[in-house]
Design a protein around this nucleic acid. Structure first.
Lengths: 355, 355
DNA sequence: TTGAAAGCGCTAACAC
DNA sequence: GTGTTAGCGCTTTCAA
């Protein structure tokens, strides 16, 4: 039972003016209001602790200054910096986040429905690069609602999307190992054979493949194991690799999460990282510097992705129509720590080829 | 530029009935509507893909079915399961989350202001047990807005609050080490001397103290180091402890984050965990099972805290007035892994004293 | 059983 | 400059 609200009319009455005058003062059209009355209005606002009702404003303005944020896997740590980035640009612009988490296409569609009935002005979708069907997104586009999709498989060039250089980074990571003198290089990948598949997993793996090929190195089938982007998956994949008689001496592990458990598996198998097994990975969460050994990894600019996403949606909003921007692909920076060790054969560094 | 909305009047027109009839049908008062017209309405709704405008409904109902979630430190991984828990009970109830992150009291007050102007029906505050001033929260209470506070220092018994058994778990963790035969037990604590201080850090530390005292063990000053709940803080604290000539042989580390970097520091100091240094900690994030060695830790029921919080707010809403429930204190379950090793002197287990 | 009418709190033409 | 008016899309008496 909410107490009686203080309305604009209460303020008007108190200040001895009309409601529209109060509205003018409060909405910056103050130049059209005389000094005396403006002052009186402001005083009344203060006195009554008046707080404009954003709902009512939304009704007449036909916009809510609210963005729907749909998170497909709320338990992924990556989404924290995304939210932070989104907030970072939305808040100064006076926009708010309405959150909805979904688990699959069905609940995503559901989330869109309810958020739309909430009249959100735009959407940001953050998934883990799952290649879901996108009909409902296209439908959104048809209706003129601006939205952007982060880290998701989207072939349609008319959809605003933000992702990371997965292929390039897979390539660069592998090249890094090669430049250190490694030639027997395996990889623990994300879920590439799942349905729906993960774009990022496929791309990162492709980067590894191409780098190996470009440097004339053998891609041993047994050295390519899926770790499904999970701790347990990475753990088992690493065990599988460690158990082989003919082992790789370096590993491109496609995510930090899997790299952590790879470290454990190697330790348990009696293999030293980086001496027996060099490891390079991707992500750079806060703990990456504090594993034993510290993880050499490529930092994913996740916060920036959130910022960009918010900016694009905001643009679409002010443009008066959904703008389609070039897909944005953010690059990842290499953070060298300990898991790759030193160069194996000093002086014999290979030049990094471009993918 | 949002396309023209389909309104209830469009539906009414299409069905050849009045808007209020449509409203009745859509709001469950369908028993008062004849079968024929109800069917016609439903068809029109389907045909026009009509989606009721929640904003307009909120206006007249004077409630938004929306809960404001204020996160004080968005970069803390703990808040993920909290959000998940909150969503878990809010969604089935037809409620939504509006998110706001704040960094300090100022921005928290700001967040409350804007969320209130958004007419959220209630609030959930999730902080890291900071002992902030609470005037603005009391003010909220005065105004009859239901809210609950998770993991925060609140002496006021009239405020709904949820926290974990910090003291008890600190005690239990230390007792666990003692029961394993350890007597030289140090601790790496959260920020207990900060301003504002952290309730959880103080309580956990107090638990350690009391357990040590109850078992007649010496609390060595040099073995109590603050790690500030951060990776780096834990790292330095552990280094400090490892460097001492007279060292403890076991550590209660107050958070998993600090435990991870403690592991690293010990490794670098040439000390083996658990042989040279047993470690018990609190939190149990996903990675706790995959460190080397795996962390023996007390699991914080964070998801449950989110659920409870949502339930309490929902109750306050349906009760028609903010209900004050007993402070809820959730207990933490011990997950034994490897960082405490086996019993030092089998057979000599101490009984766990209750705090 | 149905519909007309009166708003919810606000903004934005448009008068004055 | 300032106030009057007409809604935004919906729910909810209250009459019919």
């Amino acid at each position: 039972m909410r107490r009686k609200l203080i309305t604009i009319r209460d303020v008007a009455e108190h200040a001895g003016v009309s409601a529209s005058t109060v509205s003018h003062v409060l909405n910056g059209n103050a130049q059209h209001v005389g000094d005396v009355k403006r002052k009186r209005v402001l005083e009344a606002v203060e006195l009554l602790r008046y707080r404009p009702n954003a709902i009512a404003r939304s009704m007449v303005r036909q916009q809510t200054a609210t963005i729907g944020l749909v998170l497909t896997e709320i338990d992924n740590p990556l989404f924290i910096p995304v939210v932070a980035g989104v907030e970072d640009v939305l808040r100064p612009a006076g926009y708010h986040i309405v959150l909805a988490s979904s688990t699959d296409v069905e609940s995503e569609i559901q989330a869109i429905e309810t958020l739309r009935s909430q009249q959100v002005d735009g959407f940001i979708f953050m998934s883990l690069s799952l290649c879901y069907p996108i009909d409902h997104l296209l439908h959104l586009k048809d209706e003129g609602v601006p939205f952007v999709v982060i880290n998701r498989c989207m072939d349609d060039p008319h959809i605003n999307q933000i992702s990371w250089e997965d292929y390039e980074t897979g390539y660069a990571a592998t090249s890094h190992l090669i430049s250190l003198g490694h030639t027997r290089i395996g990889t623990i990948s994300g879920p590439i054979h799942n349905d729906p598949p993960r774009r990022s997993a496929i791309e990162r793996h492709r980067g590894w493949q191409q780098a190996m090929q470009d440097h004339g190195l053998e891609r041993v089938q047994e050295w390519q194991v899926e770790g499904y982007y999970t701790y347990e998956g990475g753990y088992q994949a690493a065990q599988h690799i460690a158990a082989q008689t003919r082992r790789p001496d370096a590993l491109f592990v496609a995510s930090d999460i899997m790299a952590v458990s790879t470290l454990k598996a190697m330790h348990e198998a009696g293999l030293q990282v980086p001496q027996d097994m060099a490891i390079v990975t991707m992500g750079d969460p806060p703990f990456a510097a504090y594993t034993v050994p510290g993880l050499t990894t490529f930092e994913l600019p996740v916060f920036e992705a959130g910022q960009e996403a918010a900016r694009i949606v905001l643009n679409g909003l002010t443009a008066g129509q959904p703008t389609t921007t070039q897909p944005i692909v953010l690059s990842c920076r290499l953070r060298i720590r300990e898991s790759c060790g030193a160069q194996l054969t000093p002086g014999k560094t290979l030049p990094h080829l471009s993918p």
